[in-house]
Design a protein around this nucleic acid. Structure first.
Length: 631
DNA sequence: ATTAGGG
DNA sequence: CCCTAAT
């Protein structure tokens, strides 16, 4: 059946879909990676933000019966054409409920698709505007040209698949086990194929006419593995089952979490969220589910076909540092790690709260998907992230955790965040905001509150100069000069010790029942010295300035932090310097007397010349004196 | 947005 | 450190 096999039209290599035809063994399973993208004003594709994903999700949920998601133009085309040829009528029926598309519709769709196909790059085709809710401005294949609706979440849940050009890299797709197979279904592509090839009636799939070989192929596409079984009956059953299951899924709604689409079993007794990751990496099982979902979506007869072709990496203005390969990797990674946005969290919470506890929280906050700098988000944000299974509220959930090399502030809280997200959405939101805000602060981009899906990832150049240490989080290593390092080492191991605790972020309950994150980052001697210096130069109270001057490199020290630290220093300096030992508090950084002395002096000085901040000269003079005296 | 203070 | 009030 030549039908479905390989869709090569996308010659550009990036080929989206490919799932195609009988790929060699395991490969087949995962050659496809779905990616959510949105169409930019100029027609570019940029990674969809979580928000956008949410939008899509909304569609899925709301306009379930109206939308049809097609994995890929090629596919859909294939599918459609096939459909026509075979049955003349597209039948999408599932055991429960059927969605029948008439030829007319199909034809129009086909046209659109074809058009899209030609355009190749872009490609979002929202089929017809069937959005009953009207909430979504629909545009036909040409969305890009429709400015009016542009800003709207013209995100399509584009399911586009990337061919796994990197052979081997996709082994993960290999089939997990039989069990998974049972419930899982095949990739959309496959599904389409199946659909095309076989007509289903009343939930029954007629595979009878197929030859054993065909069955084998079908099996392969369906389950992603080959089979040696010669028993046609068995094969048929097996395949049919899979297909049927797929149909069942359609009844459910989707939840997009992170980069995953999760099927929510609304009222199913099993409060288990089946999740499917859009990009399958190593989760074969997930993959299954995912496909299932997708296919289900298709089944449910989504009117709109959102077709998007792979985004070309080249289009993004990425940092030079990333090679194209890396880039791809990044992208892939990105998919898995995308963090939840505020809105995402909100909605999620809402939805979830209505149901059961099971919550899936994205571990990453979505930072950056900027329309302007699309690529970035993937690369800069994504780190290795994995999900771990946790039990929350009695349910099994997957908590994505980010195992970043650098355990510094920003993202570290996510885990905890999720943990308590469960408590209440109000809190959650708050926290989310906080997190985002913090991140923004540290990272210099604070778009947290931006409801719009435009999150800029623009990291301030100044802050992240060092690629290796993207974040000062580690402990100012990046900017720290050698001198500083020396100093640091000399004084005490502080730095080291502090680093140990660098990621110590704890969540403490607040009176209101809310949670807040407490991020503790021990002050290093160097920092203290800098602070003192800064104070001596700018005067106490001018923290923002000191921050600018002396701590520009330490993104995590805010002016408030400086202030607090100074306060503490003052306290310390006045307090009886313990038994000759400057060191106070065990773990705390022992502040050398010299520094305390300086602090004291500065303090006194400040007292004498209180808020005279006006006289910068004076201050300067004092400073000089002060310093000279001290030094 | 910064500061100052309280917790 | 975080939070909030006051600028």
């Amino acid at each position: 059946m030549g039908p479905v096999t390989g869709i090569e039209h996308n010659d550009d290599g990036k080929l989206d879909k490919s799932s195609s035809a009988l790929p060699p063994r395991k490969q087949i399973a995962n050659p496809v990676v779905y990616k959510l993208v949105r169409v930019e004003g100029d027609g570019r594709l940029v990674p969809a933000t979580d928000d956008e994903v949410m939008e899509v999700e909304g569609f899925l949920e709301c306009d379930n019966s109206e939308m049809r998601v097609v994995a890929d133009n090629g596919q859909s085309l294939e599918c459609i054409s096939i459909e026509r040829s075979s049955s003349g009528k597209l039948r999408l029926e599932c055991s429960e409920g059927t969605a029948e598309a008439d030829l007319g519709k199909l034809n129009s769709k086909l046209q659109i698709l074809q058009k899209v196909k030609h355009e190749e790059k872009l490609r979002l085709s929202c089929g017809a505007s069937q959005f009953s809710a009207g909430k979504f401005p629909v545009m036909d294949g040409k969305i890009q040209s429709d400015p009016p609706y542009q800003e709207i979440p013209s995100v399509a849940s584009s399911l586009n698949c990337t061919h796994s050009n990197q052979s081997g890299s996709f082994d993960q797709c290999s089939r997990p086990s039989e069990g998974a197979v049972e419930s899982g279904s095949s990739a959309p592509a496959v599904y389409s194929k199946l659909k095309c090839d076989f007509s289903m009636f009343e939930g029954e799939i007629c595979l009878d006419k197929l030859s054993i070989r065909e069955l084998h192929e079908l099996f392969k596409v369906t389950f992603g593995r080959e089979t040696t079984v010669k028993d046609k009956q068995w094969l048929r059953r097996r395949i049919a089952m899979s297909l049927t299951n797929s149909c069942d899924v359609s009844a459910t709604t989707f939840i997009v979490k992170n980069n995953k689409i999760v099927r929510k079993c609304e009222d199913s007794a099993e409060n288990v969220n089946v999740e499917a990751s859009i990009s399958m990496e190593n989760m074969a099982a997930e993959e299954d589910v995912n496909f299932k979902d997708l296919s289900a979506a298709e089944d449910s007869g989504f009117e709109d076909n959102l077709v998007v072709s792979e985004i070309r990496l080249g289009n993004h203005n990425m940092e030079d540092k990333f090679g194209s390969e890396d880039h791809q990797m990044e992208q892939r990674a990105a998919k898995r790690i995308r963090k939840p946005t505020k809105r995402y969290i909100e909605e999620l919470s809402e939805n979830e709260s209505r149901e059961h506890h099971p919550r899936l929280l994205g571990s990453n906050k979505n930072i950056g998907i900027g329309y302007t700098k699309p690529a970035r988000n993937a690369s800069s944000e994504m780190r290795t992230s994995i999900t771990r299974l946790d039990t929350l509220g009695g349910s099994c959930i997957q908590i994505p955790c980010v195992s970043r090399v650098r355990r510094s502030c920003p993202r570290s809280n996510m885990t905890s965040l999720m943990t308590f997200l469960q408590t209440g959405m109000g809190e959650a939101e708050k926290l989310a905001n906080r997190v985002l805000g913090e991140h923004g602060l540290r990272g210099s981009n604070s778009d947290n509150k931006s409801p719009d899906k435009v999150l800029k990832l623009t990291s301030t150049p100044g802050k992240f100069h060092q690629p290796s240490a993207p974040e000062p989080g580690k402990e100012q290593c990046p900017v720290k000069g050698t001198i500083e390092l020396q100093q640091e080492l000399k004084p005490k191991k502080i730095d080291t010790s502090s680093r140990t605790s660098d990621d110590d972020i704890t969540i403490v309950p607040t009176a209101k029942g809310g949670m807040r994150r407490k991020h503790h980052r021990a002050w290093t001697l160097v920092e203290v010295m800098k602070l003192v210096d800064g104070v001596s130069q700018c005067g106490a109270g001018r923290w923002s300035e000191i921050k600018r001057l002396s701590f520009s490199s330490y993104s995590y020290r805010t002016s408030v932090d400086l202030k607090d630290k100074w306060r503490n220093l003052l306290k310390a300096s006045y307090a009886p310097s313990d038994d000759g030992m400057n060191s106070r508090k065990h773990g705390a950084i022992p502040i050398p007397e010299t520094i305390l002395a300086r602090v004291r002096e500065l303090a006194e000085m400040n007292l004498q010349v209180p808020p005279n901040l006006s006289s910068s000269k004076l201050t300067a003079g004092n400073v000089l004196m002060d310093r000279s005296g001290l030094l």
